[in-house]
Amino acid sequence: MNLSVTIKDVAKKANVAPSTVSRVIHNSPTISEKTKRKVRKVLKEMGYHMNENARNLVTKSTKAIGIVMKSSARESLYNPFFPEVIRGIGDFCNKEGYSLSLTTGETEDAIFEDVVKMVQGRRVDGMIVLYSKKDDKVVPYLLKQGFPFVLIGKPSTNMSGITFIDNDNVQAAREVSEFVINLGHERIAFLGGSPEFEVIQDRLTGFQQAMEQAGVDVRQEYIKLIPLNRTDGIKAIDELLELKEAPTAFLVMDLLLGVLLLGVLAEKNLKVPQQISVVCFNHSEFIEFLSTPLTTVDIHTYQLGYEAAKCVFDLIANPEMMEKSISIPTKIIKRESHFVAEKEIK
């Protein structure tokens, strides 16, 4: 790439006016196809590349989309969900010539400050928020600022004015719970996820609906709503396994927690699936490399990100566009981590 070549240099070699070269670069309909071909040939021969920063100053566009993480980037990127959803966002943005800017704060307040800086400093043209939770400051702030953004997850407050992409998490949890119940399990643990996140509340609702419909008691000691980290995860798993009537099946809200569960069970010489069934939400290619490949609910994470990116571009182009919601279907992928219990549900 030759950074020293200017529009004037190209115009001189192509024997046209500099304004003509500029119009060709911007694909103006006022320039004939013959002239466009000639100028484009010279542009290529001379290795001219437009100064993106200069163009962005003129168009008042940053050519960047902000990504608001649920927690610190360091912590979030350990979770297979976030790299995959960002891959979906990135693939669409790349087609549009946009880059991504991620929040890097280590705390909730620091992440919010990152968002404020992006908005006030006009560092991005729009934002995608990768979570939905109660008492969150980010979404109300973006609404108040009238800034284009899309939410991945169902809004926890009034949906007016919010475009969001989500799965039907109540239905998904109900279907996978029915799957486990129909295997013959009654002692089913619901493990993982902080109750402040809407996705966890919806999945818990679906689980409870399936249990009640099957006539199986929902035992509160089997429900562990916890932050998704190793310490809290091990503590919750230990408490469940130490119950007088320990669960025979685990419905786990996060893939990393599912892998942690497999490790704890192995340490206690409890075999999956021979003694305990494990079913997880989320999907990743690395599952196939586990000693016991997990049965999972594929929420199509890549598609969540891709559709969110499409929607935020629509909002940038048309800020007055009515809000909308898109539901991405889910699918149970049956592998080797579940078994048919001896006691059948009548």
Rank of each mutant, 00 (worst) to 15 (best):
D232I: 12
I237H: 09
V312K: 08
L265F: 15
I234M: 04
L240F: 10
H283G: 05
K244L: 12
L290D: 01
L251K: 01
K268N: 11
G305H: 04
I276S: 13
Q275M: 09
P319T: 06
I234V: 11
Y306R: 02
I287W: 01
K235V: 15
L294Q: 03
P227T: 11
L251P: 06
A249T: 14
L225M: 02
V297N: 05
K310N: 14
V264R: 15
N282E: 15
E267D: 15
L265H: 10
I226A: 14
Y302V: 03
F289L: 02
V279Q: 06
A246Y: 11
F286G: 10
F289S: 13
P247I: 04
L251C: 09
L270C: 07
N318Q: 15
L255P: 01
L256G: 00
L251E: 08
L251G: 07
T295S: 04
A246N: 15
G233V: 04
Y306D: 06
K271R: 13
I237M: 13
H300K: 10
G263S: 08
E221G: 01
L270Q: 00
L261K: 10
V312I: 07
N318A: 05
I234F: 15
V264F: 11
H283F: 15
E288M: 06
V312D: 04
L243C: 11
E245Q: 14
V252T: 04
L315G: 13
T296M: 02
E221I: 05
E221H: 09
G233S: 12
T248I: 06
L243K: 08
K268P: 12
K224T: 08
K324F: 13
L228F: 01
K271N: 14
A317Y: 15
E285A: 02
L256I: 03
I237V: 11
